[in-house]
Design a protein around this nucleic acid. Structure first.
Length: 878
DNA sequence: CCAACGACGTA
DNA sequence: CGTACGTCGTTGGC
């Protein structure tokens, strides 16, 4: 398997800074870790061949004689694998004079006999002979990451023989890799036919005289060879070993040794994968909260003031857990828990808090000098605010830290983080209905108390991990401050023009009905136009239109495909179907927005800071980051977002071409940098270079090709993709890309470098050090690897843009406060900020926003910001 | 009732 | 066979 890994993985991508090649070690371990994870074996052993001869070479000197000496970069890697096995405490078996496969066969049969279910992983097909109901061979198809399960049925299917007969077939066919020639002219089909017909190789040999034809003669001419092959490919089942199969239990790895060795080998990604799969990563002592001393405020003789003085003095970090509810920019808190580093916690029922305690709590909470750690502080802030409390001094947020350490996880619950970083199980946060789990014992909510204390402990461990990943400053300088800006934006919301949206909805509604009726008319019956399944029946069944691109469940009916079909058939059904789709979508958008208007007449979205793996924000309930802008009808929806009472206008400010500017900066390409410094239209400038014409001679068609390509490059676009998008031949697209790269070689170099480096380190990085881990870059699966490569191309660019606008938000918010402005931030849409301008501040805010956004990052090209104002979001466009 | 899927809006 | 998201309706299994 190590040898296969050596050939499957390109050596140049797997070597340490000291020059040691590690591709065989990497591939072998990658396979082993995957198997440990997926198969969860109770017993485990790895067998090695030993140098020096075996009984087979004694019998037949040429055995494996054609094997080339292992190439230089392979040398030493077997020893490294041995070392890793020792560190991982894996049972290793080897025996002079025997091959690894003899050891495996012996163990497999013994294991099966003692009632075990056995998996044999080997790249030698001879192992198929031990396959039975209890023994499965996992055989590598290509590389070492894809293993095929050879069960009795699989062997029968592939070779037309039961497993026990496989060596009979192999003896006839021969094995080139072992230098065992077979019978010339006899392949697997003939061999299987004979073995089945005569019931085994012995009888084939005994009846060799009767076999007709050339193949029969060939067999008679090579009988000795066949007999010898069969002796050699027979695996021994009785090798004497120092350990019996029952003694091969898996043992816990030596964590320290693994860390040291993986440091040397520079296996950062594998280390994560290994530790993630280890059973001992599971909680050692699942005793929820047993070791936290939780008391209820009501049971404190001296009240909260005394507790705070003892446990939460100035500079002492305290964990704060809020039980409450938050949504649409507001919330309510029911109870809180405070926990300290010594695992003392106090819980407070806010409904029954005595006035004196409430005053102490409020003062402590609002005190910037009393450091606090929370999980999702933005939510807590909304909840506390619902009770009139101000929260300040948040120095750590475990959800944000967990996100920065591993940005592509689905969730960052405190329970998950506790398990991962502290190996301690935490009771689940909430019931499915959102109600907090309250396990009151002596009046104290033990779970809340445990969570509060756990926060403090996590700060240390998670903080250290984040620091090691170079993400500490991102937490402190970017994510925590921007969280404060976001909570305010959520609270404020954006004003909606209800009657405008209602009118729109009515109009869309009417259009939906009209197009539906026309569509039914065109095909003579009613179908559900929102059902792709029913549409397929109509289009490809009844109307017999040409088939479109395949989906998992049939053929696509997406807008592109329908437009193409319409171009071909001009069928009126398609026209109305497309219009219906369009209008129904707009109606849904208008409807959804109307439903989300709060009693204050404003729409309060929720921004999520820990969802997008690249570092972007996301927006839900409602999503205000995907409000239509491209169509006329879409723009009318933007008219439904308007300036609120007491304010003068909405203002939008966006970065123009920020991703291309980041590309210019990161690649350092002279041409692209010059393009931005020249002040010319970017795509015309690039086009003039590619097409070798003056900037003012670039045709609109050329410009749009260049624009598509420039942006496509940042996403890992292929020549195929470009050709499809532009409707040109693949060859033309390829030529276009070649010329582009010739002119902008720095871009090409950057793109290859970024992937290479990510493959080496395991992650990509933005200009502010935000990492994204991409273990799939070394996957044997091409689709996954290609996908990871495109992510690697895009993540630094999209992520850097996300970094920059977050900093811009922090700066803008701060500058507005410092300038004493009433104007405020409302929304962020990835490269755009929407503000509400107070009367008389328009000019000042215009200048301020340009300044702060422009100064958010120091790139080798200028950041260009365009600003517009107006009564509605649409009018504020520029 | 829920998850998966297709479709489609944004940057 | 271009990245990153969220939401909706339909569908089919539980």
């Amino acid at each position: 398997m190590a040898f296969r890994a050596f050939y499957a993985l390109p050596a140049e991508n797997f070597s340490t800074t000291t020059g040691q090649h590690t591709n065989a070690v990497y591939g072998f371990l990658s396979m082993l870790i995957k198997l440990l994870d997926e198969e969860q074996p109770t017993h485990l052993a790895v067998a090695f061949d030993m140098s020096g001869g075996t009984f087979r070479t004694e019998q037949y000197a040429e055995y494996k004689a054609n094997r080339m000496a292992a190439p230089e970069p392979f040398a030493g890697q077997i020893d490294l694998i041995h070392e890793v096995m020792t560190a991982m405490n894996v049972n290793v078996l080897e025996k002079q004079g025997y091959e690894a496969d003899d050891i495996l066969a012996t163990l497999a049969v013994a294991g099966a006999k003692s009632g075990m279910e056995v998996l044999v992983i080997s790249g030698d097909r001879d192992t198929f002979q031990v396959v039975d109901d209890d023994i499965t061979v996992l055989y590598p198809i290509r590389g070492v990451s894809t293993l095929t399960r050879m069960t009795p049925a699989a062997v029968l299917e592939k070779y037309d023989l039961p497993p026990a007969r496989y060596p009979d077939l192999a003896a006839l066919v021969g094995e080139t890799s072992d230098n065992l020639p077979g019978v010339p002219g006899v392949g697997p089909k003939t061999a299987a036919k004979w073995v089945n017909l005569y019931d085994g190789l012995d009888n084939v040999i005994a009846n060799a005289d009767q076999i007709k034809g050339k193949a029969g003669q060939s067999l008679r001419d090579h009988l000795d060879q066949v007999i010898r092959n069969r002796q050699l490919n027979h695996l021994l089942l009785d090798v004497e070993l120092p350990m019996q199969v029952g003694e091969l239990q898996r043992r816990p790895v030596d964590r320290e040794a693994v860390h040291q060795l993986f440091d040397t080998l520079e296996f950062d990604v594998l280390r994560d994968r290994l530790f993630a799969t280890l059973p001992e990563t599971a909680p050692v002592a699942p005793s929820p909260g047993a070791d936290v001393d939780v008391v209820a405020l009501a049971d404190l003789p001296d009240g909260l003031e005394a507790w705070l003085a003892e446990h939460a003095g100035p500079g002492t970090l305290v964990g704060l857990d809020i039980t409450g509810t938050a949504a649409q920019g507001s919330g309510d808190a029911w109870s809180v828990a405070l926990g300290d580093a010594d695992r003392h916690a106090v819980t407070v029922d806010l409904a029954e808090i005595p006035p004196a305690d409430e005053a102490s709590f409020a003062a402590w909470l609002a005190d910037e000098a009393r450091p606090k750690v929370l999980h999702e502080a933005k939510v807590a802030w909304h909840e506390l605010r619902g009770r009139g409390f101000e929260l300040a001094g948040v120095v750590f947020d475990t959800a944000l830290a967990g996100y920065l350490a591993h940005p592509d996880q689905r969730r960052y619950s405190l329970a998950d983080l506790s398990l991962r970083y502290l190996r301690r199980e935490l009771a689940t946060d909430t019931e499915p209905d959102g109600q907090a789990v309250l396990s009151l014992e002596g009046g104290a909510d033990r779970e809340a108390g445990q969570r509060a204390a756990t926060l403090v402990e996590l700060t240390e461990v998670l903080g250290a991990d984040l620091k090691a990943r170079g993400g500490r400053h991102l937490l402190e300088e970017v994510e925590l401050p921007v969280q404060c800006v976001l909570r305010e934006m959520e609270r404020v919301g954006i004003c909606a023009d209800t009657s405008n949206l209602e009118e729109l909805r009515g109009g869309f509604d009417e259009a939906v009905e009209r197009h539906a009726a026309a569509a039914y008319e065109a095909i003579g019956r009613e179908v559900n136009l929102s059902s792709p399944k029913q549409l397929q029946e109509v289009l490809f069944g009844e109307l017999e239109m040409p088939k479109t691109k395949k989906t998992k469940t049939g053929y696509t009916t997406d807008a592109d495909a329908l437009a193409e079909l319409y171009a071909k058939t001009e069928h009126p059904f398609l026209e109305h179907l497309l219009a219906h789709r369009d209008q129904i979508r707009l109606r849904q958008t208008a409807e959804g927005l109307l439903k989300s208007i709060s009693p204050d007449g404003r729409i309060h979205t929720t921004f999520h800071q820990t969802i997008a793996a690249t570092g972007r924000l996301s927006s839900t309930e409602p999503n205000l980051q995907n409000i239509p802008v491209r169509s006329d009808d879409g723009l009318r929806i933007r008219e439904g977002f308007v300036v609120g009472d007491g304010y003068e206008a909405l203002m939008t400010a966006d970065y123009s071409q920020i991703e291309m500017r980041i590309m210019a900066h990161l690649s350092g390409d002279d041409g692209l940098i010059e393009a931005f410094r020249s002040g010319e239209d970017l795509h015309s400038f690039v086009g003039s270079s590619v097409f070798e014409v003056g900037t003012d001679e670039v045709t609109p068609a050329q410009r749009s090709k260049i624009k598509a390509m420039s942006y496509g490059l940042a996403y890992g676009l292929s020549a195929f993709g470009l050709s499809r998008q532009l409707g040109i031949e693949v060859a033309e697209a390829r030529t276009l890309m070649d010329v582009y790269f010739e002119r902008f070689g720095g871009v090409r170099d950057y793109l290859t470098t970024v992937v290479d480096q990510a493959r080496r380190t395991g992650y990509t990085e933005t200009i502010m050090g935000r990492r994204r881990y991409l273990p799939d870059l070394t996957s044997d699966n091409r689709q996954r690897r290609d996908m990871a490569e495109r992510m690697a191309l895009n993540a630094p660019i999209q992520g850097s843009a996300a970094d920059i606008i977050k900093v811009a938000m922090i700066r803008t918010d701060r500058a507005l406060t410092q300038a004493g402005c009433r104007s405020r931030l409302l929304l962020q849409v990835h490269d755009e900020l929407v503000l509400e301008v107070s009367p008389g501040e328009a000019e000042q805010v215009d200048e301020l926003v340009r300044r702060e956004m422009g100064a958010a990052a120091e790139l080798s090209v200028p950041l260009d910001i365009s600003v517009g104002t107006g009564r509605s979001w649409r009018d504020a466009a520029h």
